[in-house]
Structure formats: C-alpha cells, structure tokens
Design a protein around this nucleic acid. Structure first.
Lengths: 206, 206
DNA sequence: CCGGGTTTTCGACTTTCAGTTGAAAACCTC
DNA sequence: GAGGTTTTCAACTGAAAGTCGAAAACCCGG
C-alpha cells in the first residue's frame, strides 16, 4: 500500500491513503489519478478500478466527507520514487492508519484476492518479463497462500495468457536450471470475463 | 427494473431510477433503502449491494450530481404494488430513460450475470419455494441463455444449497410428472466466496 | 382403465480442467 | 565429474460440469 504520513491534525502522525477532493469538472477516476500523480508516477499503474463508496457520517471528524475508494495496482519489482512523507507498506503489516483507511485497505485486499481467482487480473501485478517462479511468488504473496508453480503455469497457459520470450533468466548463486522467461499476451492485458460456473450450452464436438 | 416516470423537467416523460439526495446523517446504503421505501416494500429486497459511482460532470443537466448506484434484487414471482408513476420493466426492453440511467441499468445487468456465475447469488432471485424448472427459467432469464435443468440442480445440490421441502407442485394442464419443490438452504442465503481458480494446496485424502 | 403424450427426475457417461507427483533437464560449486 | 539445486514437463488422479437417455409420474381421450 502507498501511504503518506499526516503532518497536521486531524490524525497527525497517522498514515493515510492518497486522495483528495473531487473537482467540479472531473469524474472520480480522473480525480484519483490526479491525486495519485502527486505521489507516484501514474504511468506505472497497471490497473485502476472503483472499489466502493465509504460514507458513514462519522467516518472522519469535521465536515462530512463521502469517499469513493479505488483499487490501483503497480507491477511487482517496480519501486517508484515517492515523496519524503510517503512510503510503501505491506498490507499484512500496516502502520497505524487514519480514520477508516485500514478497513478500506482490507477491503481492497479482499477484492484483489477474489479477482485474482476468477479473472486474469494477475497481469497487473507482474512485470513485463518474468519467470514462472517469480510469478508464483507474486500470486502467493497476493493470495496469502502458496500456489503450485506447475499448476499456475498450466492454468495460465491453457488460457493463452503466457507468451514465452525465448530468453532464459540467469540461475541463482546455488545453481539450478535457468528459468524460461515469459510475458503476458497482449490480449490478456484486459480483464477477462469471470470463469462462468453455469456456461451456455456447448454442443459436443465429435 | 423498477423505474418511475418523470413528470417535470428535466427529462420529463422519461423513465428514471429510484433514488435521491444523501441525508447528512445517513450512509449511502441507508439512503437508498429510504428512497426505495417510497416505491416498493423494502422487506422484499433479497439483496442490496453497491454497484458503482457515476460521476461524469455532465451526466445530467443542472448542478453537478455524483450518484452511487446500487444493485437490488427482488425474488421472482414477487409482484409488489407500486405507485401509479412507477412500474417494472424488462431489462431487455427498456423504455427511454433519463440521463445516464440506461448505462447504469446495463452495468447492473452485467454485474448480476457475472455474480450469478461465480457466487450463489441466485437465491436472491428465487422465491422461497420453487421447482427446478422454475429456477431454470429464472437463471436463464437473468443470464440470457438457457441453462440445463439437470446440471443446474446438480451444481446447486453439490454445494448444499438446495433443500427439498418434500412437497410437489401440481402438474400443468398438459400433464407431466409433478415437480419436487425446493428452497434455498439457510446457510446459502449469503453470498459465498467466489469459486477460486487457484486454490490453496489441499493434501490428498488417502 | 388403458395407451399415448408430457414433464420431471435421476443415473451414467463424457469432457474439461485443476491438483499432485516424480523424473528428467540444465545449471551451479567443489 | 560428482553432488546439490532449481526448473520444466509429462502423466496420473480427482473433482465437477456438460450431455444423454431411460424411467417415473402425471394428464387426457377413448
């Protein structure tokens, strides 16, 4: 999570999600991209989607503020420079946060985990080129449990999302077979339909 | 879709989604239930969830309005009484609608279809007691394609969602075997986790 | 009340795809 | 070159969806 430390009241010293007021001539998506641009290079955002509206009247002190929260994803390995009051934090080790921001973060985490399961959103977390082991680490970190590299490769390959680059990565210091490198196929860079449980009838071939 | 006909400008004569301004002491969920209560018996709502924020600056004439849209579901067969300016409409045959309300409806339809596939949201569309044929009709209407009654029954039964009542429905005028009646199991009345594609490792039994 | 038509139910087969395993491949260091 | 390490891949297993067809249980008309 990208968080910044509040210098002034309210909630001075606590960590806060980037954001701000909605301009009169922009929609919420434009607005959050504008706000984010002050903290990080927006070009690195691989995915942005609405998360939810948080509107409890007492969610923060002072005048009533209704927040539209977004989920934005940056590929792993990207370590963008951020201002001095801003820093990256592990979702499983959050610092003390302001207002209801922790619940927003947890909601975002759950959304990501769910979407990783039933869409191909994984491309937004992966760098342009990766090995299956690296991708396994990314998926495992995001989901919170270790996934099988063999199975991950086959599931993604079957959907035509993996494209081998032909190159191999250098082995680690302890040796091992060099890993083949992959990228996500271009047509995999947008979210596919969720995996339907009840599909349209598909007439048997043969 | 529950729509009401606008009597006055703007967009007089066009059909509009129920809704209204957010009170200073309520959150958006409370607000939409309050607004809906003016049109329909809110007790019949089997499911309510946030859909999305619609915030284009020019989405409607006059002062700028940011809308938080909700998806609410009423079980089939329910035909609640509504005020004289209000009526139900088929989503695949919408009348002329005001502002961006048609795109909101279509977004809601897509959300419902997706969630029907990867959750057990179907319970919110079904009446308390139903036959498999009736449930098939409901699913088919919502999804836009005909599903197999045999398969639907087995998929839901395998998840423990179907509970036979022991009763049978009266056959139609042309005869046929009387259909067994079912209800949704109590623990199926909340949305289950989506069906994970990459699951945690599950050690083999045996 | 019996036979034909209709609808539902259910078991069995097929297909698809995810989970698992183990062996071979390809590298490292000593 | 031997031994250790990591990746890759083919094959097996298992679970669940898609399909099919027969049997069950009703209607109606003669």
């Amino acid at each position: 999570m990208l968080l910044w430390r509040r210098a002034k009241e309210p909630a001075a010293g606590l960590w806060s999600l980037p954001g701000g007021g909605l301009g009169t001539t922009e929609d919420v998506q434009t607005s959050i991209r504008r706000q984010l641009a002050e903290k990080v290079d927006v070009q690195q955002l691989a995915h942005v989607e609405q998360l939810a509206v948080f509107s409890a009247p007492d969610r923060k002190p002072g005048p009533r503020v209704v927040a539209t929260a977004f989920l934005g994803l940056v590929p792993a390995g990207n370590d963008p420079e951020v201002p001095s009051d801003t820093d990256w934090h592990r979702v499983d080790a959050l610092p003390p946060t302001a207002f209801d921001h922790e619940s927003i973060v947890l909601r975002a985490r759950d959304r990501l985990r769910a979407k990783l399961s039933y869409t191909n959103l994984g491309f937004a977390l992966a760098p342009p080129v990766f090995t299956i082991s690296e991708l396994r680490e990314i998926y495992s970190a995001a989901l919170g449990y270790r996934v099988s590299a063999t199975n991950l490769q086959r599931v993604l390959a079957r959907r035509g999302l993996l494209e081998p680059t032909g190159e191999t990565a250098a082995p680690g210091p302890s040796g091992g077979r060099p890993a083949a490198q992959f990228g996500f196929a271009a047509h995999g860079m947008q979210i596919t339909d969720p995996f339907a449980v009840l599909r349209p009838p598909q007439h048997r071939s043969g």
